[in-house]
């Protein structure tokens, strides 16, 4: 199987969908001539031309609104926000329009738009450029929210997101664009709303998504050395949430740790934990633990930033705590 970076996998998905469907177009800040702030749209202007790969002014609300309007007219825009931080300027179009128009119009219009954005912590980008907003989007009925962790999922999920009849928020972690993985050579798509068991285990379930999945897999390897068998469930899509796969795993392991890079308050982990305790309370042998980012705006100094971002060690320690007395 070919090995691709996460970025190359996204690029392939865009290219293949644009070749397959003339209604698909890409629009955003410096997506065309500069080929994207993170070079995800490399080569697309050359292949598809300026009508389908469109550089915009720095006008996030109008970019998002242009996407919604074009989608209502039946096109399939892929809107790139340079980073998720700037999508705050477009929230009205996303929350009040993209998400609601299908319902509010009684089904007369759907909004088949994808909003892609780099998300998460970078390398010392400071508080305004190192944020996660998936829990904001996940809160809104009418949106679908996707955060792939691997190149194969990135490609397969982006293809499904573009084909989906609804608005999809597609968040790509900034620090995994260069991560590599096997990507099937044949045409495929990964369905939205289906979690993936990335590693099977028996003693504890680690439920996570996006870059934290990579930390969870590393932590699971170290836990195995201690004789603890960890199962890693990568949610991949946060809405619709595949709670069945989560619950099935927790029923098997009886212990759960939910991990996110995001702040803890009202975050995705809180939601997953609420649903697990409703569905599988009697199956639990220990309180569910949560690993989250530290509840402060991201500090700039390298050492402080490192302290604020959860990583492999945090996942590892949480799994030790939740399995304490279970093995040793």
């Amino acid at each position: 199987m070919p090995i691709l970076t996460y970025r190359e996998a996204l690029n392939q998905a865009l290219r293949e969908e644009m070749r397959a469907d003339p209604d698909v177009f890409l629009i955003g800040e410096e997506v065309a001539e500069y080929q994207g702030a993170y070079k995800v749209s490399e080569g697309l202007l050359a292949e598809f031309g300026a009508r389908r790969v469109i550089d915009t002014p720095i006008s996030e609300e109008a970019i998002a609104g242009a996407g919604v309007g074009a989608a209502m007219a039946g096109l399939k825009p892929v809107v790139e926000m340079m980073t998720v931080n700037f999508s705050l300027l477009a929230l009205d179009q996303i929350v009040n329009h993209a998400a609601k128009y299908y319902y509010m119009s009684g089904g007369q219009y759907n909004v088949p738009m994808v909003m892609r954005a780099p998300t998460g912590v970078g390398l010392q980008l400071g508080a305004q450029h190192s944020q996660n907003f998936e829990s904001w989007f996940v809160h809104v009925p009418g949106l679908k929210v996707v955060l792939p962790a691997t190149p194969a999922d990135a490609k397969g999920l982006l293809k499904s997101a573009i084909r989906d009849p609804d608005p999809v928020i597609f968040l790509e972690h900034e620090l995994i664009y260069l991560s590599k993985g096997e990507v099937p050579a044949e045409d495929y798509a990964v369905p939205l709303g289906v979690a993936d068991v990335k590693r099977e285990g028996a003693d504890v379930t680690i439920i996570t998504y996006s870059r934290m999945t990579l930390f969870a897999l590393k932590a699971a390897e170290r836990l195995a050395e201690r004789g603890i068998s960890a199962e890693v469930v990568d949610l991949r899509t946060l809405r619709p949430l595949d709670i069945d796969t989560v619950v099935e795993s927790v029923r098997k392991t009886h212990r759960a740790v939910v991990c996110e890079e995001d702040w803890p308050m009202c975050g995705m982990a809180a939601e997953v934990i609420a649903q697990i305790q409703t569905e599988a309370f009697d199956d639990l042998d220990a309180p569910i633990l949560r690993v989250s980012g530290v509840d402060v705006p991201m500090p700039y100094a390298k050492n402080l930033e490192k302290m604020a971002v959860p990583g492999e060690e945090d996942v590892y320690q949480a799994c030790l705590r939740v399995t304490e007395g279970h093995r040793d």
Partner: peptide
């Protein structure tokens, strides 16, 4: 759409114009 958000119809019309 007759939107209840003041000003929000203009970006939408821009998108319709783009389509």
């Amino acid at each position: 759409g007759t939107t209840g958000i003041v000003g929000a119809g203009m970006p939408l019309a821009t998108g319709l114009g783009l389509s």
